[in-house]
Design a binder for these strands. Structure first.
Lengths: 339, 339
DNA sequence: GCAGACAATGTAAGCGCTTGCATAAAGAGT
DNA sequence: ACTCTTTATGCAAGCGCTTACATTGTCTGC
């Protein structure tokens, strides 16, 4: 049914009156071929509308110039944006991106990794460090270069190009403590299997402890990373007595949910309740009031991750981990506590 | 460097003491193999951690159970959502999705189509009908099943599973005319090469003409599909004298941009200016005021497109086009004109 | 004019899988 | 007991490309 009549390299070779080897060289290493032959062959390629068969190429060359990425979800714009930058950088170097998502499930992640490797990915980009040993064993068995992003851990099984989630959230929490907030509650994504979520909550605790506060009593609601779940979690936290003056959320999506729930209850943000996010997606600037959040350097991270991973693939070396800087974005969703 | 030691079908065959043909059958047609052999082979597969090599498989079988989709952009959540549904439906049938984006550029779209076909896509999903004849010629040359979504045209070169953009926007425009709006302006995405954009503007003109209004004088600003461009276009239209009482936008993203610009200028929406969108993405319900818009049945469309395309691939028939219904979502961003 | 070096091209062996066909084994029917 | 099915398995030919190696042609420099 499919590709009834796609021209093959043999057709091109015949039409240009050369061997298939020469056609292959014209496509992959033109400098090895005489000008005259090159033109003739490229003419034949054009006339036939020839496109090399990817599978055959992958099989013969044992590389695909394809890189796989397994991200937790496409739903959150922050990953979409980061991948966009990653993809653009790959494209400049002649690589193609294959994306799969794991829905924050380690089992699915392992499956997706296998699929991508089976599809011939020359290297992999993964998010965060927290995954089963078996997955790491698989990667090292197969000798597949892999890089972690979105997190930074100098001692991880894989090298990383990311930022320090803990320090970033600590910075934000410090700022909030300076504004006088003491009744703090947290809405976090599920922490199991998600080091970014764990580190962010950890950063808040760090800041509280440095202030001499009891971080053990910090109310933390874990939920899925979507607006409705964020709203529900916000509701549960607001029902506490006394209610918090500040809600720190694991990402902007949860914060938007919290904002909505606060509005539904007639609370004014930031006068009655301050809310913070994390990621700095476009949404953070569009909601009313705009969200105070942590800006994640997604473009820089994507670009650098691409360069680094390509380096690993082409030179076979393990790179030094890179820690990028995040920064605070102070906007209207927070204010100081009334004295 | 890559896949130093991935086990092959030969390794499995040796370990299970059968031929490679039997291993292949265990994986692809288990009912053709005796229970005993099946178990032995599957055990070997598990022990070795064997994953079939995709490229080899594609080459030998000349099909990949992969479907390609070329969408205008990943940035707009409406495509992301629609693809999500498409992908889920494909997955149920054992197919995998490969996505590429064209940035609304017909040349890039043609490239991406070639790439996907070169990668062995068994079929393609494309958005809209407006593309060069050469692209259609390529597809029919190669006998690649392809389906159009997001638009409906009974006479298109390809069959479609979509909705009537013109009728949908006409419905919204009718409603706005009933509310008394007469000074209407439009913010549209670029119309060249984009039948959806063209049809939506056409739908507004239809409604106006049916009301006896001069559709020729309708101010239309074309711009890129992003928030900033929408805001800028909104600014240009508001500078007209007299300014419009209603801004109809080609999609929700543009409408959010318009909303922002109106706010920046101190105009109250909907009291001073009504604004409408199109698509009904999540954002439409989150902005203040929430957007009146047209709900696109993206989930239904994605699911049905998947079924239809798989049908085309597996039976080789050309299906009847399907027209789905869109519906209005009336929210706070519009109000009747003061008498 | 000729050895030596280099550039351009061809030859052919796979890469890891699927599948048509041949073969072998096991029942079924008479 | 013997043939005829039916079922399970093996054999081996590709699928369309890349690339190591062999071959041929073209200059250099002496």
């Amino acid at each position: 049914m499919t590709q009834k009549s796609s021209p093959t390299i043999d057709d091109v070779a015949r039409l240009a009156a050369v061997s298939t080897a020469t056609v292959s060289r014209c496509l992959n290493a033109p400098q090895k071929v005489s000008q005259k032959t090159l033109e003739r062959v490229m003419g034949a390629v054009r006339d036939l509308g020839y496109t090399p068969n990817f599978a055959a190429r992958a099989m013969a060359a044992n590389r695909t110039r394809t890189i796989g990425a397994v991200i937790p979800t496409m739903e959150n714009a922050i990953f979409a944006r980061g991948l966009q930058a990653f993809q653009e950088a790959l494209h400049l170097r002649g690589y193609t991106l294959l994306v799969a998502s794991s829905a924050y499930d380690p089992t699915r992640e392992a499956e997706q990794i296998r699929t991508l490797v089976g599809r011939g990915a020359d290297g992999l980009l993964l998010i965060g460090h927290d995954r089963p040993d078996a997955t790491y064993a698989y990667l090292s068995d197969r000798d597949v270069p892999a890089l972690v992003s979105w997190a930074y851990d100098a001692d991880g099984a894989l090298s990383s190009v990311g930022f320090d989630n803990r320090a970033a959230m600590r910075g934000l929490a410090n700022h909030m403590l300076e504004l006088g907030h003491r009744r703090i509650a947290v809405i976090s994504g599920h922490i199991a299997g998600n080091d970014r979520a764990a580190e962010r909550v950890g950063g808040i605790r760090d800041a509280m402890m440095a202030c001499g506060l009891d971080a053990g009593g910090l109310p933390v609601e874990e939920c899925d990373y979507d607006i409705d779940a964020g709203a529900a979690a916000c509701g549960r936290l607001l029902d506490c007595d006394p209610p918090p003056t500040l809600l720190m959320c694991g990402n902007d999506v949860l914060a938007v949910g919290a904002l909505r729930e606060a509005g539904r209850r007639g609370l004014r943000v930031p006068d009655d309740l301050s809310i913070t996010g994390f990621d700095d997606i476009e949404l953070a600037r569009i909601v009313v009031p705009p969200l105070t959040t942590v800006h994640v350097p997604h473009r820089q991270m994507g670009g650098l991750a691409a360069e680094t991973l390509i380096g690993m693939i082409e030179t076979g070396t393990r790179p030094d981990p890179v820690k990028l800087d995040s920064s605070l974005r102070l906007r209207g969703s927070v204010r100081a506590v009334r004295p």
